[in-house]
């Protein structure tokens, strides 16, 4: 009984010591005051971008006032609210572009995925027809395309921009615009073939969105007999 009690106390103490030491070590490892917030800043406007303080301070050795001052306010969320945080502004030398000019640091029109994230979820277009699906990962990982392979002349980076254009039609694709830039039968399968590779239909859309199967609503199952 006694020996059991001491063993338990001993084990608890040992574990606590290790944990405490671990905590102290961990907190020593990253100095929030010197290096800025530990977790990355995630902007969602205008598009999702991830910024790591640590990469810039701890690893590269920049001081806080290298950026916080004229370029970025210390306050959270100020830059996106200006509405001016765009790649065009960066190319102009504003915001990140102050350093990311190709001289001091890699230019803002290169190395996109250092800050931008390739969306996991498929892009689903519902205009002009419902519904067309596009998977970024298939194109970047399986076919090894770069962002600017498409985000150049074919597509802007902005969500929903293509859909808003009255020109986002199969006709335009046949003329080599949008997806038709590659889907011409040469580089990739022609856009007037294999329709249902991308066109998942209203039923496919409902399934992706987790809506009750369209078939049930339409009564394909001999409903009403």
């Amino acid at each position: 009984m006694n020996s059991n009690f001491f063993t338990t106390v001993g084990a608890t103490l040992l574990v606590s010591t290790v944990l405490l030491a671990g905590n102290t070590l961990a907190s020593d490892d990253y100095d929030v005051k010197a290096f800025g917030p530990k977790s990355p800043i995630v902007w969602n406007t205008p598009v999702k971008v991830i910024f790591e303080h640590r990469t810039h301070t701890d690893e590269i050795g920049l001081e806080c006032n290298a950026c916080h001052g004229e370029i970025f306010a210390m306050q959270r969320g100020v830059a996106p609210k200006t509405g001016k945080l765009t790649m065009a502004a960066l190319a102009d030398g504003q915001f990140c572009g102050a350093c990311h000019d190709g001289d001091t640091a890699f230019a803002s029109d290169t190395n996109c995925t250092a800050c931008h994230v390739v969306p996991d979820d498929p892009i689903i277009w519902t205009k002009p027809v419902k519904a067309v699906v596009f998977y970024h990962k298939v194109h970047t990982e399986e076919y090894g395309l770069e962002c600017d392979s498409c985000h150049n002349e074919a597509f802007t980076m902005k969500v929903g921009a293509a859909e808003k254009s009255s020109n986002f039609t199969m006709k335009a694709l046949y003329d080599g615009q949008y997806c038709g830039k590659c889907h011409d039968g040469d580089t990739a399968f022609a856009s007037n073939t294999l329709c249902n590779t991308c066109h998942i239909g209203a039923k496919g859309y409902d399934r992706l969105m987790g809506v009750d199967p369209h078939a049930a609503a339409q009564g394909v199952d001999n409903g009403g007999h």
Binding site: C195, N196, H199, G201, A202, A215, A217, G219
Partner: peptide
């Protein structure tokens, strides 16, 4: 491509109610 514009047009033109297994034209998948 199952865009179902035909289904919408039919419902509107011929006053086919939605649901209850009511359809004049449908698309099978």
């Amino acid at each position: 491509v199952d865009c179902e514009k035909c289904l919408d047009a039919c419902r509107e033109t011929n006053h086919v109610p939605k649901g209850h297994g009511a359809w004049r034209t449908d698309i099978q998948e």
